[in-house]
Design a protein around this nucleic acid. Structure first.
Lengths: 212, 212
DNA sequence: TGTTAATGACTGACCGGTCAGTTATAATAG
DNA sequence: CTATTATAACTGACCGGTCAGTCATTAACA
């Protein structure tokens, strides 16, 4: 019989387990108010044990950000690199769908939320996020826009405004659903919401043939 | 001679002064890591004195949110109520201008940033913000959209998607400039950025007469 | 003089980080 | 296969510093 006492020996998986527990606790209480002992308990360890794997509480925060940051941005980058040349509009819609699906999932958006909350107090975290997430996202969006302009699918709008127009609604969606726990009104799935946003961004608010 | 020693008489302005100091310190360090003594020093008082005006540190946070919340939302509400019936498009542009000007100013966006960071840990703050800011903004945007649809200026898009499309870029702008301290690339003033976003939202990304 | 605003030393709880000791497992010997 | 030794993972009591909140005292008025 495979023993499974309280004291398990799997030191290789420990760091990830601790980071997962740290994300949960940091996310619920914020970095400062989170207690290392709570993280330890959440990971099924004693407080002393987590200090075998991380030198400090702040190191857990750093590890967390480094682990999670960039995953979404890199996925977006790949999506754009693959899809944008052939069909920029389809890539754009797929990108928004991916963005809203991620931002609408509390498990996925926990890390970005944490970064938003703590970046002001930890300049190196802000810098890391800037280079590993924001810059990658910005480059991808610029490439997508350029591809669309090249094929005639998109107008040649300003790329910084484009970035804010695309990422912003996703962030707003995250804030409304995961921070303020707003009940969804009309569009229930993130994918539906992404479609509606894509419609607005692609076609604009004005009617095709102005009535005036 | 009117003495002006360190120990002044109670000016009745004290609560506001303390709240302003609290906003500064909370904004820089976050609620948990902020020390009451720092707030007192910032307000030019001793620690004991601030407890003459607020029963606890958390009460300062609450007072802060209650004081600052809704000012922008109410201004937006008024702007929409006045301008939307006659010229929805102009009201829309004015709204975006106001939003970006506010969100681009670190002094103004400090309170929203703080709420974003701490709302997860203080449910009543989240609830207060929901009813006093988000709901008001939502109502105003719905009214603006309805007015535009009535005059034929806007298409009848989904109102929740509309809200995210309008507010989101403003939040993204706040995050990029005030949290991640990104240097502006092309559009240097918030008003310019607002104009560019308004252009995208009004006309869409697709060319007016499709090339295909 | 009495009242009120304000002080800052103080208290007590809390928590990050440490470390002497414990236990499970592995290695080796008999 | 059992006994012995070695070791790495782990524990939890503890230390030291920090900080929210208190209160005896003081200064500035009326």
């Amino acid at each position: 019989m495979t023993r499974q006492t309280k004291r398990r020996r799997r030191p290789d998986a420990r760091p990830e387990e601790i980071l997962a527990a740290a994300l949960t606790v940091f996310s619920a209480k914020g970095f400062s108010a989170a207690r290392v002992e709570d993280i330890a308990r959440e990971a099924g360890l004693s407080k002393g044990a987590v200090y075998l794997y991380f030198p400090s509480k702040e190191a857990m925060l750093n590890g967390l950000v480094e682990q999670s940051a960039g995953q979404l941005a890199q996925a977006a980058e790949q999506l754009v690199a693959q899809g944008a040349p052939q069909d920029p509009e389809a890539a754009f819609r797929a990108l928004l769908d991916m963005l809203f699906t991620a931002m609408g999932d509390p498990g996925v958006n926990a890390a970005p939320r944490l970064v938003f909350a703590e970046a002001a107090r930890f300049p190196e975290i802000a810098a890391f996020y800037r280079t590993h997430v924001i810059e990658i996202a910005r480059r991808s969006l610029r490439a997508l826009l350029a591809a669309g302009v090249a094929t005639g699918a998109f107008r040649d709008v300003d790329s910084d405004a484009f970035m804010r127009s695309v990422a912003g609604p996703g962030i707003a969606h995250m804030a409304l659903t995961s921070i303020f726990a707003l009940p969804p009104d009309h569009l229930n799935t993130p994918a539906d919401m992404a479609d509606a946003i894509a419609d607005i961004l692609l076609h604009g608010l004005k009617p095709r043939d102005p009535a005036t």
